[in-house]
Amino acid sequence: MAMTHGSFVWYELMTTDTAAAERFYTSVIGWSAKDAGMPGMNYTLLSAGDAQIAGLMAQPEEVRASGAPPAWLGYILVDDVDGCASEIATKGGKVHRQPDDIPGVGRFAVVADPHGAIFCLFKGRGEPPADRPAPGTPGTPGWHELMAGDGEQAFAFYSDIFGWTKADAMDMGPMGIYQIFAIDGVPAGGIMTKPEQVPVPNWGYYFNVEAIDAAIERVNAGGGQIINGPMEVPGGSWIVQGFDPQGGYFCLVAPKR
């Protein structure tokens, strides 16, 4: 997928125990890990082969003090971070962290949609990496899923801000409509109104693994918890959702059991 306005380009885990989280995710997903060498902070880069996929850092003190659990954040590429953050605020969203620079990397902001689901905006310096792993490569992102306050309203919001378009929609019966969205014409994720048992609207990110049953064994061995699945989804892939040992919500997808 081309890295254009509206594309997910980075994933970041803020957690309470970075060393334990690194052990868990490198085992479960197969990432390699190395320190980013950022002055003044510890930030771990997680890679699939030569491709950097995600980052890992300690929760900022103010986030931990608020009682927020460890969580994955998705970064969405935009042409203008400041302008997009302002637009989100005027359309009912919230800016949790005003646009700021990451020295030598780019500019970002932490924002939320009108129902409170948090994500990040990002614009990098220089050109993005030319070579991206093929879709489905273990360790790469495979799907993005929003449990929204209101699925229809959420799709309208993200479509307006990022230009996402509707792909297939699945009728989930009492659970409502699962609307698949496309980025540059390529299906990239789904949006649905959250079930009552999901406490707050949130984004979930599915990372590719080779086989779901083996990944479940690694999750259990590493002290994580599977809360849903394994479940086969349309197209033949298998998914699970769970919590890591620190309580961070994560998802996995694989082409086989």
Rank of each mutant, 00 (worst) to 15 (best):
E87T: 15
S47G: 02
D131P: 08
D80E: 08
D160W: 06
G116F: 13
R64P: 15
P135F: 01
S66L: 08
I53W: 05
A89P: 15
L45D: 03
P99V: 01
T44M: 09
G92K: 12
M147N: 14
H96Y: 13
P135Q: 02
Q153E: 15
W143L: 03
Q59M: 12
D80Y: 10
G37A: 02
G92C: 13
S66E: 11
I118Q: 15
P128I: 12
P138F: 00
G106S: 04
G139K: 01
G124D: 04
P133N: 08
A109E: 03
A33L: 07
T90V: 13
T137A: 01
Y43V: 00
I102S: 00
A130D: 13
P128M: 12
I76R: 07
A71N: 15
I102P: 00
G124E: 07
L73M: 14
I102Y: 00
W143N: 02
P69T: 14
I53A: 08
T90M: 14
L121K: 02
S66C: 09
D79M: 08
P114I: 03
P135N: 03
G116W: 13
F122C: 08
P128L: 13
P141K: 05
H144L: 09
F155V: 08
A33M: 07
G149N: 15
R132F: 08
P69S: 15
H96R: 14
D50M: 06
K94H: 14
L146G: 08
R64V: 13
P114Q: 03
G124F: 06
P69Q: 14
